[in-house]
Amino acid sequence: MRSETSTTWANPDGTMTTEEHTAPIRFKDAKGAWKSIDLTLAEGTDGTVAPRGHGLGLQLGRRNSVAGGVFASAAAGTGRQVEWMAPWKLPQPSLDGTKATYAEVQPGVDLRLDARRSGFESDFVVKQRPADGVAPVWRIPLRTKGLTARQNADGAIEFVDAKNVVRSRIPVGQMWDAVTDEHTNLPVNTAAVAMSIEQVSPGKATLVIAPDAKWLLDPARAFPVTVDPTYANTPLYSTFDAFVQSGWPNDLSSTVDLRAGKNGTTTERSFLNFAGASFQGKDITAANLSLYQYGATTCTATQLDLHAALPASTETR
């Protein structure tokens, strides 16, 4: 048995084994057949860049497109679409796995797009300190179908349908400089990015991304600086993992890592949400959790405390 997030095998002894993921691993194509998600980017004959397998039909900008062309487009359900328009001409992209880099879209600024299962991440990489001493502000035209853009109270941008249901969003962005932790390789200096939305006409809006000038132009800032807004079609990240961090009030569920323990003076905890419907009323005889670890502030063996909330009427043996 297969679903978007799981694969189940029947065992010879009458039990079943389910491999459940926190994010989709497959999707159904137009003919209703299951296809594996493959975020590896490839360039088509028309110059458009797209993942080899993506449930949202994600497409990235084509080479040498003129200003005003689409540089990222993804569906948010049937009849709903969000397109990010390029205010500059796009050069030939450099592809590396899930990432496409468009060099020098502005003097000293690269645009790097990273395919995600739920959408895409867009990084504006400011390669050196602005010579004019002015922090950049990006105004990105958005074109929507079946959706209207609005700003949430926490600063995130939401896309709602005719019934005011949130279908996709741009969480509050982050930015960081080139200083990284020697143990985890994670950014040391981070800050939130101010975003706003300007309505132009039905189906058209402008996303304004305004990095904090004081933070960006601080003499201690180490370049390049990366400014990171992310688009996701999962408004609440209901099937995705997340971590929380003391002293940071914003949504961190769009990040690509999990953190646990002490990170300097902050405390971090991670939450993983697995679909549990298939386990309802079942006897679970054994369970294993697999994680990739790529960084830690210490190599000393540390106990990891796991707390599981199982569906009602489920027994663990």
Rank of each mutant, 00 (worst) to 15 (best):
G69I: 02
Y102D: 11
K89W: 05
L90A: 06
K89T: 15
A72W: 03
A86F: 03
A115W: 05
D96R: 09
A75R: 05
W88T: 13
G97H: 08
P93F: 09
L90I: 08
L111V: 11
L90M: 10
D110M: 07
T78Q: 02
A67T: 13
T98F: 14
R112T: 13
D96M: 09
Y102N: 08
G108R: 04
A74E: 04
R112I: 08
P107M: 04
K99W: 10
A74G: 05
G77W: 03
V109S: 04
P91E: 08
R112G: 01
W84G: 02
L111I: 11
G68L: 09
P91H: 08
G108L: 07
W88E: 08
G108N: 11
A115G: 05
G79F: 14
A86N: 01
D110G: 11
Q106K: 06
Q92G: 05
L95Q: 09
G77A: 01
A72R: 00
R112H: 01
D110T: 14
V82I: 15
V82R: 05
A86W: 04
T101M: 00
P107E: 15
E104F: 05
R80H: 11
A103H: 10
Q81Y: 12
F71L: 01
V105D: 03
R112L: 04
Y102K: 04
S94A: 15
P87T: 12
T78L: 00
A86K: 01
V109C: 02
E83L: 07
L95G: 10
Q81C: 04
G68F: 14
A75T: 12
W84R: 03
K89L: 02
P107H: 14
R112Q: 12
V105C: 01
W84K: 02
M85P: 01
A103T: 14
S73V: 00
R80N: 08
A67V: 07
G97D: 12
A103V: 09
S94W: 13
G108K: 05
S73R: 00
T78V: 06
G68D: 12
P93T: 12
P107C: 04
W84D: 03
P91Q: 06
P87M: 07
D96N: 15
E83H: 11
A103S: 12
A72H: 02
A67W: 06
E83M: 06
T98N: 14
L111N: 08
L113V: 15
A100E: 10
F71Q: 01
E104K: 07
K89I: 09
R80K: 15
D114Y: 09
F71I: 02
D96T: 14
R80G: 06
G79H: 11
T98M: 10
L90T: 12
W88Q: 09
R80E: 13
A86H: 03
G97V: 10
V70G: 02
P87K: 04
G97A: 12
T78D: 04
V70Q: 03
D114H: 13
T78W: 02
R80D: 08
A72P: 00
K99Q: 14
V82W: 12
G108D: 10
G108I: 09
P93Y: 11
G79I: 11
